[in-house]
Amino acid sequence: MIENPYYPIDSVVEDIITETPTIKTFVLKPSRPIKFKAGQFMQLTVPGVGEAPFTPSSSPNVEDKMEITILRTGKVTEALHELEPGAKVGLRGPYGKGYPVDKMKGKEVLIVGGGVGLAPLRSLIYCLIEDASKYKRISIKYGAKNPEELCFKRQYDEWTRAAGNVDFTNTIDVPAPGWNGRVGLVTTLLDDLDIDISDSIAVSCGPQIMLKFVTLKLLDCGYEPPQIYLSMNRKMSCGMGKCGRCNVGPYYLCVDGPDMCYDKIKDIPNVFG
């Protein structure tokens, strides 16, 4: 008998947290613990609707529960947003390589997120903060469309209080009534970086167009391509490097990514789509 890699692990939705008008976090309890690394992703099945890839937003140090934070955008994600606690879903994975946490040891880690892109990064943030002394600094920059769309609002203070070497700044795209914080695209948070760039690793997750401008900005600031890691996004089906769908040039994102070192992909035409 061979285990069927296409059959999902039965899981129950234990809780649903509304993060923003378009984003919800699903707390899942799989029937057996799932060990994953920050940045690895899962294929999540809504029975009778379909499957879609998501990166857990919870700590990789917790194996018996998994949180996945999801933006409502189409068929599967609409169905997810309709679910109630107690619903049954399926999980396959984890797939992919995950973030290069080992390379971050002893460095100043710059984390740049946009929109729901902070979800996969939250898993990394937990992973780094839970072991904060191993890193010189953990600097988080986050942008959203408007104040309502800021994901994980309740946690920003928690993160900066967790350790002395964590800082967090955010911005919204355009001014909004009652908002006294920074305004402008997330790249504006990189204008006055006080980071020792030569000793830093930058990771970014967000819409492809944002990744493009963040990358250009980082290069402008003095980052070298090998220091930049981007969560790339492609259509996925198998998650196992078999179905051929998710390539960026010669790489299958589901196996070699989804977080890719910019140095590897910088010469691929239209890499940001």
Binding site: Y6, Y7, T45, P47, G48, V49, G50, E51, K88, S237, C238, K242, C243, G244, R245
Partner: peptide, 25 residues
């Protein structure tokens, strides 16, 4: 050419059959 697509064919309720079918880039 080995590329394929997985899709879930709905049956009753939560039941479905997952099918792998040849696909074309």
């Amino acid at each position: 050419c080995y590329c394929f697509l997985l899709y879930d064919m709905k049956a009753d309720g939560e039941y479905f059959q997952r099918i792998s079918t040849w696909d074309s880039c």
